[in-house]
Amino acid sequence: MKVHVDMALCESHGQCVFAAPDVFAFDDEEEEELVYEPSPGPGRRAAVEQAVLSCPVRAVALDGGAG
């Protein structure tokens, strides 16, 4: 499973962090930069799918496609 976040679209809504906190996180408190695990284990699929669905700017993609 491959995850990709289009950082040009990301507006720090944080919805992906809510849906899959072990895959997405805000790194540096100062910069508020989103970081993520690009190859999470298969057990995280449902949570990542929820992150894809809940991103208001559709910046999160799974397996290279919007699905």
Binding site: H13, G14, V17, F18, P21, F26, E32
Partner: peptide
């Protein structure tokens, strides 16, 4: 405000 990193813990 400009601080989304703090929101998940509250949620």
């Amino acid at each position: 405000v400009n601080r989304t990193s703090r929101l998940a813990a509250h949620r």
